[in-house]
């Protein structure tokens, strides 16, 4: 474990806490894409198949349970909770995310580390996570003004993978057999997708103005 990875995990956890705070405190999920939340639940469920077979550390197991539990809880809340689901922007959240799932699964069948059930689903989850934010970014552009908590949620979600890239660089130089090129390349694509959001987020922070994404 190195400082970049720990900071990355904490930032990821922070993004989930901010999202939970927004939904719980405002009893509203306006501006949040249910499709992105469903994609993230799928990412965690397919990535942590080894949850009960490989024990890495207490930290690793606890964090996996937190990520799986929180993502499922958020999807449940946005679908079933009568107050929250009323504020869902269903007519704006129309990204066809099933295509993302199909494309990522196809890619995982072609590019993976080993042709085993677990490795293919792991590669699938890595590719899917890279594009999972697309429905959310599209929804932000369509819904115009972005409330602070939603903006912070997306910011932390983008920042965590950028910290993981630093972690992979660090591990590449400090460990002999370290090669995570699937996660690395996918992580670079993932972080790049946030580039324009980061730009407008920085502008709004500098001008102390409302975050506005151009339509």
């Amino acid at each position: 474990m190195n400082i970049f990875r720990l900071a990355g995990d904490m930032t990821h956890l922070m993004s989930i806490l901010v999202l939970l705070l927004k939904i719980y405190a405002t009893k509203s999920c306006s501006g949040i894409s249910l499709k992105t939340q469903e994609l993230y639940a799928l990412v965690f469920l397919t990535r942590y198949l080894d949850l009960f077979t490989d024990f890495i550390s207490v930290y690793n197991t606890v964090m996996k349970l937190v990520f799986i539990g929180s993502s499922l809880a958020i999807v449940w809340c946005m679908r079933m909770h009568r107050t929250v689901k009323r504020s869902y922007d269903g007519q704006l959240d129309t990204f066809r995310h099933y295509f993302l799932v199909a494309a990522c699964f196809l890619s995982a069948l072609i590019v993976h580390e080993k042709f085993t059930f677990q490795e293919i689903f792991w590669a699938f989850s890595i590719y899917l996570e890279a594009v999972a934010i697309l429905p959310q970014l599209v929804l932000l552009q369509r819904s115009g003004n972005v409330d602070n908590l939603t903006g912070q949620y997306v910011f932390f979600l983008g920042a965590y993978r950028a910290l993981y890239i630093l972690n992979w660089i660090y591990r590449y130089f400090t460990e002999q057999h370290f090669s995570r090129w699937i996660a690395c390349i996918s992580g670079l694509v993932q972080t790049a997708l946030y580039a324009d959001f980061f730009y407008y987020y920085f502008i709004s922070w500098k001008n102390n103005s409302k975050l506005q994404l151009p339509a």
Binding site: I56, N60, F67, K114, W122, H177, S179, R180
Partner: peptide, 10 residues
Amino acid sequence: VQDQVSKDEL
């Protein structure tokens, strides 16, 4: 043989 690098990252 290098054993399968366990997925120690989240």
